[in-house]
Design a protein around this nucleic acid. Structure first.
Length: 950
DNA sequence: GCTGGACCTTA
DNA sequence: GTAAGGTCCAGCA
């Protein structure tokens, strides 16, 4: 048996689809925006099979043009399959190229499916004495299983199972694998559009098969059946026979199994490497190398390259030797050691890359170091601290790098006074206007240094911000950037301080040599990334956005975060007690109405009570996981008829309010300042907006009376201050009116009209004074809908209007505002042609799906094409205002501080004597931040809490 | 202890 | 229909 030759036939599409759906939650998008999920999934499976089984012979089979025969038999055959996802379509040519480079034969036969090709080949191979393994998860193949033909099925969660005759018999409860055809014919297969017998599913098919043995025998003996089933099956005899034919895999495809062609040969490694690099498959590349490493010829290739690196790399030992003892002066030349770091299969690391990282001892060495530092024009730095919260974290060290591969680490003493003394020596560097500072997420470092009374001055370059502008949809943490752009894998923080939780060390507890390697590597890598991104910023035309908006904003945000906001904890505590009482009351009522106690917060338990026990609805909706859906929309509908549902809705509202805001906010007060410090994320929203977390102060309730109370807890610094809230009125609608040059709407804004009423008056063709509340409300919904990319469907969901009424309304709306409609289609056209859309300041959003052939996917991209420039332009404008206001507050020596940003609103802690000056300053700067053909209007509110200020 | 899903809050 | 973040539960290790 072991000497019997083994052939593996891979069902390409089955594995491609499987790979694609494995990543569906978290699709693999590379830096060029290509969705590589399907390619990655397929290649993982293929390499896995090769590694596990080491086949002597292997081929990959594709479908081409579908099965002409089957379509002729049955028109609907495979007709209602969903449109193939875009990522799969682009995957196929890549996969075929990789297979060619791997010298693996690709089997396709026009007009035949992979099933038929695999079936034919395996039968031929069987005759020649091969054992054949069909690599596919598709159950249909079970009909081909014989003594020498096996299914090799990937199983969920990894690994494979082999199905021989016994397994097939057991799985399908049949006597012979050929009966699988009858089985499939009876039960049908919706994905292949095999109709099957009506009313027959898996269970019945097994029963019938056990009784009659075959489709034909069943159909010949339908008189033995009873009742409904008899009727149904007798009426579908032809369908039954057809279904069986459709389920039969053909064994006479004109292909020839030629053992020599199918031998698994040495791959063309450079070619495969090239393709993998283009796709940015680093992990897969190393996996590929490992898979073929035991192969003589390929091993010598990879060893050759590996040794080239070994000879030249600076091992950690050598680093220590160079950096140990006396502090050497800075002339150490590592250029001779700079290996050609040509393609290796592993990602580069500190171990394999020549580098020269030194720690700076105290005393004379520090003075020499600082002298050198001050003579630079551009330096990358990175702070190491005792924790992630910059307000409480203490400095452990700072690394510096201004030359690739080299850098210095200045460790900080634990004693606060001594640390302050050391940082004072570095003050001239940080406060130098002449030296450019480079870093990754500089906002963090600036905040840490601010605690040491250091203001970072001079030009800044933040690699995280740069990458956000270059590729807003990707993640921007340094490890990912290093891997993507430098093919380099930095030392992980976990390696250094352990996994979080139980025994995680503080950076301070890590040995100095390790601190140095880790910290200087970060600075070194960041410096390299800067060189990379600098060019790209220019190419994408985003240099101005970077220099004039994001970089200046970083200092503004750092200041706002450090400032924090005052919170009335006592007020929240009393609010919490009130809520608690009301929640308990509701709980008691709900338990009484349900007849038992249960967890109301558990959608699962709630669904069971409402729909299984109380049977409030005949056919309850279910979520995709099979639970009863109990979302707001569904419960609201039931609320008018059922007291319990009203109580559940109230309960939910109050519980959310209590846990998310009333109880959570006081725990977020920073003890050392007595204030709440949110963290603004500058690089997460794809449109250019900020986001806020820990805590999120951008979603504090306002719509409901009860929720609104939470805003009363946000109060001025003390009695000498008041809160000022300044918000843009209708900024997004104003932007779309201006960008589309829609005069009718522009005029309405210029005249200071109520825009929704004005829209209603025009759309419904009635005088402004006669607009009803309902008409205004519908007009408002359409106005917002336009910003989000309307559909009649969405509109009818949002209003009381029917689908056709909604369509009419939208049509009239577009007739009223024709330029708006034109603008929308221009945006979509622009995106189709250029692959991106942009804001007034040129902030781009790339839309890969804009040309997708899948209407759903394309529709989503089209809505993005409309919305992103609007939402993004509004974000650009308020960012300009923030920077200017911040600068004026500093320049004017005001005591007033900017505290919060909530997308179209700014909140200030205003020193009372400054109030009038500040009101003018804020309003002027916000309204004039950007010149549009529509006036920007800002409403101001002043109060002793955030609610009152509105 | 971690993760995904459902739900809910904002602009 | 756009853009976010937080809390809870349930299932898994």
């Amino acid at each position: 048996m072991s000497d019997q030759k083994r052939l593996f036939l891979v069902d390409a599409y089955a594995l491609i689809f499987r790979g694609y759906y494995a990543f569906i939650k978290n699709p693999r998008i590379n830096s060029k925006g290509v969705d590589t999920s399907a390619i990655m999934g397929f290649m993982n499976s293929l390499l896995d099979v090769i590694k596990r089984e080491r086949p002597d012979h292997l081929a990959v089979c594709f479908d081409k043009g579908g099965s002409a025969d089957r379509v002729e038999m049955f028109e609907a055959y495979k007709a209602n399959r969903d449109e193939t996802p875009e990522a799969i379509k682009i995957a196929v040519p890549y996969i075929q190229d990789i297979l060619k480079a791997m010298h693996i034969p690709i089997m396709v036969k026009d007009g035949f499916e992979a099933d038929d090709v695999i079936g034919t080949l395996s039968k031929q191979a069987e005759k020649e004495g091969y054992k054949t393994f069909m690599v596919t998860p598709d159950k249909d193949f079970a009909q081909l299983v014989s003594e020498n033909i096996f299914m090799y099925r990937p199983v969920f969660g990894g690994g494979y199972e082999t199905w021989g005759i016994d397994e097939v018999k057991a799985k399908f409860e049949v006597e012979d694998p050929l009966q699988v055809i009858d089985f499939l014919g009876m039960m049908g297969d919706s994905s292949d559009n095999i109709p099957g017998l009506p009313g027959v599913g898996e269970k019945t098919a097994k029963k019938l098969l056990a009784q009659y043995g075959s489709m034909e025998n069943l159909l010949a003996n339908t008189h033995e059946l009873k009742g409904k089933m008899k009727e149904k099956i007798e009426g579908a005899k032809e369908l039954g026979l057809l279904s069986k034919k459709l389920a039969t895999i053909m064994l006479d495809v004109p292909v020839v199994f030629d053992a020599k062609d199918f031998e698994l040969n040495h791959p063309d490694i450079p070619k495969v490497t090239e393709i993998f690099q283009e796709l940015e498959f680093r992990q897969l590349l190393s996996n590929f190398e490992k898979t073929f490493a035991s192969n003589d010829e390929t091993a010598s290739v990879s060893n050759g390259k590996a040794s080239a690196v070994t000879e030249t790399k600076t091992t950690p030992k050598e680093v220590k030797a160079a950096g140990a003892g006396q502090f050497s002066l800075f002339g150490a030349d590592i250029s001779s050691a700079e290996a050609k770091t040509e393609t290796t299969f592993e990602r580069k690391t500190a171990e394999t890359t020549p580098h020269f990282y030194q720690s700076v001892a105290s005393g004379m060495a520090t003075k020499l170091f600082i002298k050198n530092l001050m003579s630079q024009s551009s330096v990358c730095f990175d702070t190491e601290t005792t924790g992630l919260n910059p307000i409480t974290a203490e400095l452990v060290g700072i690394s510096f790098s201004w030359e690739i591969g080299k850098g210095f680490y200045v460790p900080f003493p634990e004693n606060r006074d001594e640390a302050q003394e050391l940082i004072e020596q570095l003050r001239p560097f940080f406060e130098s206007e002449a030296i450019q500072k480079i870093g990754q997420n500089l906002k963090y470092d600036i905040k840490v240094l601010a605690k040491y009374k250091i203001t970072v001055k001079g030009k800044l370059f933040d690699t995280m911000l740069a990458h956000y502008l270059i590729n807003p949809d990707m993640r921007h943490n340094m490890d990912v950037l290093a891997e993507t752009y430098l093919n380099y894998s930095p030392i992980s923080i976990e390696e250094l301080i352990g996994k979080k939780g139980k025994n995680q060390l503080s950076m301070r507890e890590v040995a100095l040599e390790k601190q140095t390697e880790y910290a200087v590597e970060d600075a070194d890598i960041t410096l390299q990334l800067k060189e990379h991104f600098e060019k790209e910023l220019g190419e994408a035309n985003t240099q101005k956005l970077f220099d004039d908006i994001e970089i200046p904003l970083l200092r503004v945000l750092a200041a706002m975060e450090l400032e924090g906001i005052n919170l009335d904890e006592a007020f929240l505590n009393s609010l919490s007690e009130e809520l608690d009482n009301d929640i308990k009351t509701l709980e008691t009522k709900i338990y009484a109405e349900a007849g038992e106690a249960f967890n109301i917060a558990s959608p699962k338990q709630l669904g069971d009570i409402l729909f299984d026990k109380l049977k409030l609805v005949d056919k309850p909706k279910k979520t995709k996981t099979g639970q009863y859906a109990t979302g707001e929309e569904i419960l609201s509908y039931l609320a008018k008829d059922h007291a319990i549902v009203r109580h559940v809705l109230d309960y939910r509202g109050l519980a959310k309010l209590k846990s998310t805001y009333v109880d959570a906010l006081p725990t977020q007060v920073e003890p050392s300042t007595g204030r709440v410090h949110t963290d603004y994320m500058q690089t997460v929203a794809a449109t250019g907006r900020l986001s806020s977390n820990n805590p999120n102060l951008q979603n504090i309730p306002i719509r409901t009376e009860r929720g609104r109370q939470v805003r009363k807890a946000f109060i001025p610094r003390n009695d000498d201050y008041v809160l000022l809230a300044a918000d843009y009125s209708q900024i997004e609608l104003r932007i779309i009116a201006a960008l589309s040059k829609e005069e009718t709407m522009i005029e309405a804004f210029k005249n200071g009209e109520d825009i929704h009423a004005s829209t209603a008056s025009k759309v419904f063709n009635i005088p402004l004074a006669e607009v009803t509340r309902e008409q205004r409300s519908n007009a408002k919904t359409v106005n917002f809908g336009i910003i989000y990319g309307v559909s009649a469907f969405g509109l009818s969901n949002q209003t009381d209007l029917s689908r056709s009424e909604s369509k009419d309304l939208i049509d009239t709306y577009y007739a009223t505002y024709p330029k708006l409609r034109r603008y929308i289609s221009e945006q979509i056209d622009f995106a189709r042609e250029n692959g991106y859309v942009q804001t007034v300041l040129g902030r781009r959003r790339y839309l890969n799906d804009i040309n997708s052939r899948n209407a759903v996917v394309r529709g989503a991209a089209e809505r993005n094409a409309v919305n992103a420039p609007i939402q993004g332009s509004a974000a650009d404008i308020i960012k300009i205002a923030m920077i200017r206001i911040y600068d004026k507050l500093i320049a004017g020596n005001f005591k007033t501080k900017m505290l919060l940003q909530v997308h179209d609103e700014l909140v200030f802690d205003v020193h009372k004597p400054e109030l009038e000056a500040i009101k003018t300053l804020v309003k002027t700067e916000m309204e004039n931040a950007y010149k549009l053909d529509v006036p920007l209007v800002v409403d101001l509110g002043v109060g002793n809490d955030w609610l009152e200020a509105h």
